[in-house]
């Protein structure tokens, strides 16, 4: 081996803001390259929602009634969209805990890049994936007869709210990813995530659940997004008439905001605690 010249490489002079954006984009690009290198991973990630739509739509669908009438599959689809968005925080958490365990995050922190890019870039990649998931889900839903009868603007608004929910959960994922010690233990989070999506209006109207469970389900942030999406898509809503269900559109904005306000600082604090 020959000697390596010193300080031969410095980058072009640019502003701080330029490098912040560049750092974020490079982290995003890295996460997306992962999918390109592991096509099977993306097949699983996108295939799972399709299978769920078909399973819930046809296995449950034949037995389910929607209070106030309406087709169950029409009712179900916004629920499946929101469930997929909600479970997405698991992949954020997994990616973060894997990086932390491998020392990749430490390497990033020892570099002159913007520290915030580690999380922001990751989140941006997650949103790109979320868009792909929603597209696939919507196409599957259309194929089995689901229709968004509310008009294109309203449909866009519904998808926007779904992405907003996913956005707020990025910070939950980053925070959890920095909390749990190993990817294996992060897998245990499914045991929490699963009930959170089930005890909501995603699959069953809260008014059909026992009193306290129905209340919990109605107040679940996932439910607000689901109900708001149903309204905007023009699908059966099956509102139980409670305040939170009647103000679903508002709450579908408020909940993600609250989640972000709580978990973004928590994630930042956790990140800073790495240097304690």
């Amino acid at each position: 081996m020959t000697a390596l010249e010193l300080n031969a490489h410095t980058g072009p002079e640019r502003s701080r803001a330029h490098w912040l954006l560049a750092d974020c984009w490079n982290i995003t690009r890295r996460s997306l390259t992962h999918y390109q290198r592991q096509p099977l991973a993306i097949v699983w990630q996108l295939g799972f929602p399709i299978v769920s739509v078909l399973l819930y739509g046809y296995v449950f669908g034949s037995a389910m009634k929607v209070p106030g009438g309406g087709d169950y599959r029409e009712f179900l689809m916004p629920g499946m969209f929101a469930t997929t968005m909600t479970m997405g925080f698991m992949s954020t958490a997994m990616a973060v805990v894997t990086d932390a365990g491998k020392g990749v995050i430490d390497r990033f922190r020892s570099m002159p890049m913007a520290p915030s890019a580690v999380a922001v870039g990751r989140g941006a990649a997650d949103l790109v994936v979320a868009c792909a998931e929603l597209t696939i889900l919507a196409l599957t839903a259309l194929a089995i007869g689901w229709r968004a009868g509310g008009g294109p603007l309203e449909a866009a608004g519904a998808f926007g709210l779904l992405l907003l929910l996913r956005f707020s959960l990025i910070w939950v994922g980053v925070w959890l990813g920095l909390m749990v010690p190993t990817p294996e233990s992060a897998g245990g989070l499914y045991a929490v995530a699963f009930p959170v999506t089930m005890i909501s209006s995603a699959l069953v109207a809260p008014s059909l659940m026992p009193g306290w469970l129905g209340t919990a389900a109605a107040w679940n942030p996932v439910s607000s997004t689901v109900t708001a999406a149903r309204e905007l898509f023009g699908n059966p809503v099956a509102s139980g008439g409670t305040w939170v269900e009647e103000h679903a559109l508002l709450m579908a904005l408020v909940w993600p905001l609250v989640i972000t306000l709580v978990f973004l600082p928590l994630a930042v604090r956790r990140f800073q605690r790495l240097s304690r």
């Binding site: 490489h9 980058g11 072009p12 490079n26 990033f108």
Partner: peptide, 12 residues
């Protein structure tokens, strides 16, 4: 990837 994050620019 690390090179870009070290701000070498794409070609660098």
């Amino acid at each position: 990837m690390f090179g870009r994050l070290f701000h070498l620019g794409r070609a660098g």
